[in-house]
Design a protein around this nucleic acid. Structure first.
Length: 963
DNA sequence: CAGAGTACGTA
DNA sequence: CGTACGTACTCTGA
């Protein structure tokens, strides 16, 4: 129903769409990564466009629609303003390629689109809006271009996408006045003063909407301000006077032409005849999924005269259906038992499902038979809708501070149960029984978080059937949602925080504040979230199935969650006094360095402010800058400072300053690290409980947050000292550290099948020295340390897509020398070269890369016409399968190690993972056994063509355990 | 007060 | 002009 009924117009609404601006907004609002067909055609813009159009049609029921497009080539504006780019010409190729598809889409929708050489879509819109007004239509202009605001009037409303693309703001004259304090007619004056960054139009520097509006209201119009320019005070006034020419030009450019000859009449632009079969055919071609498609078509379907069935692959489907669950109440154990028997899948059914699922450890044994685990039998995931129940735990999942607030169950029959904390406590026994007996058919969002939450109530959560969060990570590793709600919004392509039961709610700008009490609200959220999990699970399960990633999910990711949850829960013990000592010492050194720096600088510069440092170094001291930052300013990073330091020996004051600054940088950083570690120590147990993020790193690695224990200094002696604060826990004796040597290179050797490299690893000799002797064709004992380190850098650079330029810079040699090294290297290891090239080629063909366990990462950037973008994607495609396979292998090793430790009845446990290193705390008398178990698990996580080498060390702290 | 920019720690 | 991360700090503009 139209919301703009307070007008004298009776016809319409007439919807005018700024095609290009909308496509542009959609393109940048939606990740192109997740919207690309298997043939590499990006579809994010068309999807967003269609989605937005559908939403507006559903909400506004327009009777007439026109879509205006820019045409390629300049306009009269680009002639007036040289830096003005016709927005279309400035668009990225990935967007341009979608414009014809958008027009195809409009054709299938029976929507007319209009373009005119030499003019922009804006002018067409202005002309149509003028015609609509003249002919008595209630008119809506859908545009992300603020220039359209000048068209707003009693009968013309501009629909403007907000920060979130799908949130439309109704820009009526009143709304414009409220936001900008000027009327629509004056808006172009304001825009001319302020400028328009997106169109590359500079305004008056330092003057924003506020000042512009103040002046406009004081003098009535831009012309008025110019006439009284002398009266403007302050810096901003002067800035205005300095830029009058620019502003005048801006005003000419942003005036819209409203009397074009378009050859169409509004009455001919009727909307209503949709070619549904063609829409479906196009959407098939674009590989739009069923949920998203139906959601989108829902809007179009409500149009009268529209016949046909919305179908996907010939199958009748329904729209996203938020069926309200039946919320039951149980007060005691008995009722709970009864409820579970009545509504949850039977124990037998759950166990049958569980029986069909392999145990993690044995399957990994099977997978370990071959590096190419994708060839092992793929376990099939049962259809979730029929046989699964859903569990959602609400509360705080931070390790060491876990708190369970509520548990929500959703049964396959639509019955739901919500238990609050006090209930849970009194029913722990029966709850555990229910969970244990039916875990085989349970679906969760975030297994690891759920383990923590349930543990807070003394409940133990065995491995469920399916984890939506991990599944989503496997399907779209480059996307990371902050929470369940965001994940839902993203996966289902619906606006965030929209009440599912309220239709068309997303177009309201005046949200009514919820006045219900907090508890009730929290309950409603929990209930909604468990529904979200169900909908997401049903959406994502077929995708996992189609990609054959259920094994990866079941035998690697989910068991990894178990291991990580344990590590996080136990934490790593630290010597707090030792930390305090070090912190004080670093603080004193930093202070000392700062005093010297301040003395030499002659002022109290903030040494942590690059901006202030630039002034001191390059202005006051007159040093010659070396490197620029990407922003154009002069870099003050360590590398740049080091160079300055070396070249300023004759300038004592500057030299002293730089030396002190470098020292301050280093010690201050260490001070920060120590401080943050101290703040993270849990006072209850003296341990640091990090959180390992299992769904963040796009390659499949883990990351560590709050605090990050994967970047504790290790390169310099001073920093490495911090590791000595990590000690065994109370009932443990020593720390054991095991790390892989050159895993990534070994993976490359295996996957490339390069005999020379394989032999290099099999030889067991000093690897880099051995490789150097091959590359330089000299005996091993003649390899110089320079040669060894150059070859070492080359080897490591391989997996990063290192350029010869970068190599040269790192080795401090000429690019020519680096080039020679590279060709020598590749002629020695020809298959490695071929393999690396093939990674990129394959990724270009398939659109994604794959690790040895079938973990994918998509690279839409490979098809980009932008060199920087494309080459970055190429390096990513080179690196992802290698880094990712190493991550897979480490995960398998962790699972195996933990399995073996518990099987052997060891008390010892893994406490840290740093990508290629595991740290364990070892109980008395277990050193040899644990060392063997972990080493074995790591060495035999998979069998490659080369051995996996693990080096180990023990000590009374982490530093000593290093080797 | 959030976000961009810069810098820097790890594998 | 080297991949993958997380954190701390400053400065700026809504």
């Amino acid at each position: 129903m139209s919301k703009s009924t307070n007008s004298t117009s009776t016809k319409g609404p007439f919807l005018i769409v700024d095609g290009h601006s909308l496509a542009f907004r959609a393109y940048y609002a939606l990740p192109v990564d997740s919207f690309t067909t298997s043939a590499g055609q990006p579809t994010n813009a068309i999807w967003g466009f269609a989605q937005m159009l559908s939403q507006v049609i559903e909400a506004e029921h327009p009777t007439h629609i026109a879509v205006a497009f820019d045409m390629a080539g300049g306009t009269f504006r680009s002639q007036m303003l040289p830096q003005y780019k016709g927005t279309r010409d400035a668009a990225p190729e990935e967007l341009i390629s979608q414009l014809p598809l958008i027009q195809d889409f409009l054709n299938t929708m029976g929507v007319t689109y209009v373009e005119k050489q030499g003019y922009e879509g804006d002018d067409i819109i202005a002309t149509l809006a003028t015609q609509g007004k003249r002919d008595g239509y209630q008119t809506l202009v859908l545009s992300g271009d603020r220039d359209a605001f000048q068209l707003a009037s009693e009968n013309v409303t501009v629909l403007f996408p907000g920060y979130h693309f799908r949130e439309l703001k109704r820009m009526t004259p009143e709304a414009i006045e409220e936001k900008y304090h000027v009327n629509p007619q004056t808006y172009p004056d304001l825009a001319a003063i302020r400028g328009e960054q997106s169109d590359n139009i500079p305004g008056v520097p330092g003057v924003g909407d506020g000042y512009a509006a103040r002046w406009l209201n004081q003098f009535g119009s831009l012309k008025g301000i110019i006439d009284h320019a002398d009266e403007l005070t302050g810096k901003k006034g002067q800035a205005f006077r300095d830029n009058i020419d620019q502003v005048t030009l801006n005003r000419k450019v942003n005036a819209l032409v409203c009397d074009l000859k378009l050859g169409v009449r509004v009455e001919d632009l009727t909307f209503g005849h949709i070619h549904l079969d063609k829409v479906n055919a196009l959407f098939d071609q674009l590989e739009f999924g069923s949920h998203t498609r139906n959601k989108m078509l829902k809007g179009f379907k409500c149009v009268e005269d529209c016949e046909g069935t919305v179908s996907v692959a010939g199958k009748e489907t329904s729209f996203i259906d938020f069926q309200e669950p039946v919320l039951d109440v149980v007060e005691d154990d008995m009722a709970l038992q009864q409820w579970s028997e009545e509504h949850l899948p039977s124990t037998q059914a759950s166990q049958a499902i569980a029986a069909a699922m392999p145990d993690a450890a044995p399957v990994i044994e099977a997978a370990g038979d071959s590096a190419h685990a994708t060839q092992t039998v793929e376990v099939v995931c049962p259809d979730l809708g029929q046989s699964a129940w859903y569990l959602h735990a609400q509360g705080q999942a931070k390790p060491g501070a876990e708190k369970l607030e509520a548990l929500v169950f959703l049964a396959p029959d639509g019955h739901a149960l919500e238990l609050e904390a006090h209930h849970i406590h009194s029913m722990v026994g029966s709850l555990q029984k229910i969970i244990d007996s039916r875990i085989g058919s349970c679906v969760v969002y975030g297994y690891k978080e759920n383990i923590h939450l349930l543990q807070a109530a003394s409940l133990q959560l065995p491995m469920p059937l399916f984890d939506v969060k991990l599944a989503q990570y496997l399907v779209e590793p480059d996307f990371h949602a902050a929470d369940l709600d965001q994940a839902f919004a993203h996966m289902m392509k619906v606006p965030l925080n929209t009440q599912p039961e309220v239709e068309q709610g997303s177009l309201d700008i005046d949200d009514q504040a919820e006045t219900e009490d907090a508890t009730h609200n929290a309950n409603r959220m929990s209930l909604r979230r468990v529904q979200y999990i169900k909908l997401m699970a049903e959406h994502i399960q077929p995708l996992i199935e189609r990609r054959q990633q259920f094994n990866l999910l079941r035998i690697i990711e989910m068991p990894t969650s178990t291991v990580l949850a344990g590590m996080e829960h136990e934490g790593a013990k630290v010597d707090i006094h030792r930390l305090k000592e070090m912190g004080d010492q670093f603080a004193a050194e930093a202070q000392d360095a700062q005093n010297i720096a301040w003395d030499r600088a002659g002022s109290q510069v903030n040494l942590q402010s690059p901006k202030q440092l630039q002034k001191v170094l390059f202005e006051d001291m007159g040093l010659k800058p070396t490197k620029r930052t990407k922003n154009g300013s002069y870099s003050t990073n360590a590398a740049a400072l080091q160079k300055l330091y070396v070249t300023s020996v004759d300038n004592e004051r500057a030299n002293d300053f730089l030396g002190a600054l470098l020292r301050h940088r280093e010690t201050n950083k260490l001070k920060q690290i120590v401080n943050s570690l101290m703040e993270s120590v849990n006072p209850k147990d003296g341990c640091i409980h990090t959180t390992y993020e299992q769904t963040v790193a796009a390659t499949g690695r883990l990351s560590s947050v709050d605090p990050n224990l994967q970047n504790i200094p290790n390169k310099n002696a001073a920093g490495r000292e911090i590791r000595s604060a990590f000690i065994p826990g109370e009932n443990f004796e020593t720390l054991l550290s095991c790390d892989y040597s050159q895993v990534e290179l070994r993976i490359m050797a295996d996957l490339s099948g390069d005999e020379s490299l394989i032999d290099a690893f099999k030889s067991g000799a000093d690897f880099h020295k051995y490789v150097a002797s091959l590359v330089y064709q000299i005996p091993m004992d003649e390899v110089t340390s320079d040669q060894r380190s150059h070859v070492k850098a080359m080897s490591y650079g391989l997996a990063y897509g290192l350029s010869t330029y970068g190599l040269a810079q790192q080795l401090n040699v000429s690019p020519a020398e680096a080039d020679v090294l590279r060709s020598q290297y590749f002629s020695t290891f020809g298959k490695v070269h071929e393999y690396l090239e093939s990674l990129v080629v394959d990724a270009r063909v398939k659109g994604y890369t794959e690790t040895i366990f079938g973990r994918r990462r998509y690279f839409p950037g490979l098809a980009s016409t932008n060199r920087v973008t494309r080459e970055a994607a190429e390096r990513g495609a080179l690196n992802a399968p290698i880094q990712g396979s190493a991550a897979d292998i480490m995960k398998v090793a962790m699972i195996k190690a933990q399995h073996a430790l518990s099987k052997a009845g060891c008390q010892s446990r893994i406490i840290l993972q740093i990508h290629d290193e595991l740290v364990a705390e070892v109980a008395a008398g277990e050193v040899d056994m644990v060392s063997n178990i972990i080493t074995d698990a790591m060495e035999h996580a998979v069998e490659l063509a080369v051995p996996l080498d693990v080096s180990t060390g023990i000590g009374s702290d982490w530093q000593q355990a290093a080797h």
